[in-house]
């Protein structure tokens, strides 16, 4: 851990959506999509945020980038508090903070050429690249992401899914950001293409000194690219550790189950591991269980889990995990 202040520092972030009654459309309650999330990302570092559907991981991303409003908490990016930043300054900060979206089909405007899509950023921020250099700069970016620069005049539908995702990456790089949020950026791609894009993201990080917030449901992908990993369940981070630590010594029962559920293409290579299959589904964030969110599916759950929300703290000098029995589980995991 360096003593420098991190590039992105999120503290106790909460985001909720109004729940409307279907008939009168009155707000009848709040869905707590993100229920108090804290993490740091150092400059040039990569945090992997893992979780299943309904975990709130995408809402975290959308809140940081300003597509959703935080209900409370703080997001400090490069020294600026984003939650209270005036609109004009927000534009300036945005340049440093970009996003790559999940769906390579929906995230590119079908009516714009590749050049228009990439150069749009410079029309909004004219000081980044002067007009007369747009064309050259687009070609540079296309080359950088592994596309043919001569294809700048083409439309998105003329490219395959993997190539479109590269266009999305080029767009995110156009403003020379410091942090790129990848929201399930490789999930929609075929395996063979996914590996290409992962390698590209890896290269860009090294070449440009980018930091990533890498959000995915696929643990093996997250492991591949992240320095640190945080596991989310029902709007909370339940465990966070360095990539190495988390995958070799998971403490939280959910992390253990999640790891155990990842399909292994070569199971015969490894000593037989006991597969943990947890029952049930992720509860609805509209009606979360009391106490620990995971207790309804947890084989360790006891009385206390229903009353006390376990805090994400370090126990026994291990890494932080939000489970009352983390130390016990750590022993079992060895």
């Amino acid at each position: 851990m360096s003593t420098e202040s991190p590039l992105l520092s999120v503290r106790d972030l909460q985001t909720s959506f109004p729940m409307r009654s279907p008939v009168l459309r009155r707000t009848v309650g709040q869905i707590q999509a993100v229920a108090g999330v804290s993490f740091d990302i150092p400059a040039g570092g990569t945090l992997g945020l893992v979780g299943e559907s309904g975990s709130g991981k995408s809402t975290v991303a959308r809140t940081i980038i300003g597509l959703e409003k935080a209900r409370s908490g703080s997001i400090v990016f490069d020294g600026d508090e984003l939650t209270s930043l005036p609109k004009a300054s927000m534009r300036r900060v945005r340049r440093q903070l970009q996003m790559i979206f999940q769906d390579p089909y929906a995230s590119l405007n079908p009516r714009a050429t590749v050049e228009q899509i990439i150069a749009e950023a410079w029309q909004i921020h004219p000081d980044v690249v002067p007009r007369n250099q747009h064309r050259a700069e687009v070609r540079d970016l296309l080359e950088r992401v592994g596309l043919n620069p001569d294809h700048a005049e083409r439309y998105p539908h003329q490219f395959s899914g993997g190539q479109r995702q590269r266009i999305g990456i080029a767009r995110a790089l156009a403003l020379r950001p410091k942090l790129v949020i990848c929201d399930e950026a490789v999930s929609a791609l075929d395996v063979s293409v996914q590996a290409q894009v992962l390698n590209l993201l890896d290269d860009l990080r090294c070449d440009l000194g980018l930091a990533y917030l890498f959000i995915a449901h696929d643990l093996s992908v997250v492991r591949h690219i992240s320095d640190r990993v945080a596991v989310m369940y029902l709007g909370r981070i339940v465990e966070t550790a360095s990539q190495d630590e988390l995958f070799t010594r998971p403490l939280h029962p959910y992390t253990q189950a999640l790891l155990s559920a990842v399909p292994d293409p070569k199971p015969w290579d490894k000593p037989a591991r006991e597969q943990i299959i947890i029952g049930g589904d992720v509860p609805s964030p509209a009606d979360p269980p009391s106490g620990c969110g995971f207790r309804t599916r947890c084989w360790k759950a006891e009385e206390t889990c229903a009353h006390d929300v376990p805090e994400l703290t370090t126990r026994l000098e291990l890494h932080p995990a939000a489970c009352h029995f983390a130390t016990e589980l750590a022993g079992a995991a060895r």
């Binding site: 597509l67 996003m99 979206f101 929906a106 590119l108 749009e120 950023a121 909004i124």
Partner: peptide
């Protein structure tokens, strides 16, 4: 749509989003 969100994250204002993304 995601491509409108993408423009938003680039810092596009309402006027730009409506005229460039929605109107077309």
């Amino acid at each position: 749509r995601e491509f409108v969100d993408a423009s938003r994250t680039l810092g596009a204002g309402t006027w730009r989003l409506v005229t460039r993304c929605v109107l077309p």
